[in-house]
Amino acid sequence: MTQAPATNPVVVELKDVHKRFGANHVLKGVSFAIPKGQVVAIIGKSGSGKSTALRCIDRLEIIDSGTIEVCGHAVHDPAIDLRRLRQDVGIVFQSYNLFPHLTVEQNITLAPRAVKGLSGADALAIAERTLRQVGLADKAQAYPEQLSGGQQQRVAIARSLAMEPQVMLFDEVTSALDPQLTGEVLRVIEQLAQGGMTMVLVTHEMEFAARVADTIIYMHEGKVWETGPGQMLREPQTPELRDFLSHGL
């Protein structure tokens, strides 16, 4: 794995981020920075705040205090231009969330046309390229319900890539898939990593995280508990991570 130099400009930076849902204090001062081209995997127990942290980066949740900078956008600022933030950030969820009434191709061309104002021909060219990238060039005319879960998830990735984001966020994108379908989705993500895409992966696939990620963040009770390279999973420093690894695998 080619390690992205840590001297690259930082594209995602969280500083002392707090987030509460009512009385539930979910993020208790989360800080981390991701240089351009790096792949970061976030691991941790259910309920430790992994998804919440990811959603805060794309302003799907609004933080209570702290700062988040993403590609030069101040995400914590109420006056942020959401449209521009979301052109720079792609996000893929566990449930693929494809638009069921549109073909694969239409799913992908919708945002480039509606948001970026691309012509039909330009959008089609992008759809063709991103579908090839995820290995589904032959499925352009299919409807989502005609595809397997793994194929749908790859279309969802292609749909995000079509907006040419600077950062991709993945929230447990293989958790709903059978083991044999998981592989095809992980391969796509790995190719993206090799292509130099900056990515944040929330994942339960420990081997995959260790292999693909430059940095691993272990979250525990709303805090960044331990952080380090893939090696960290073999030599956990804290009893919590050791415990998580022995039970979680």
Binding site: D58, L60, L82, R83, R86, Q87, V89, G90, I91, F93, S95, N97, L98, F99, P100, H101, L110, A111, A114, V115, A156, R159, S160, M163
Partner: peptide, 29 residues
């Protein structure tokens, strides 16, 4: 499904565009 609306929002579509492209036709169907 709420996830579809969120996905559309994350792609940068405005609320009006979400209604037009993502909600109206499937809802009517």
């Amino acid at each position: 499904h709420k996830g579809q609306l969120e996905a559309a929002e994350c792609l940068g579509l405005t609320r009006r565009q979400v209604y037009w492209h993502v909600i109206l036709r499937p809802a009517m169907e």
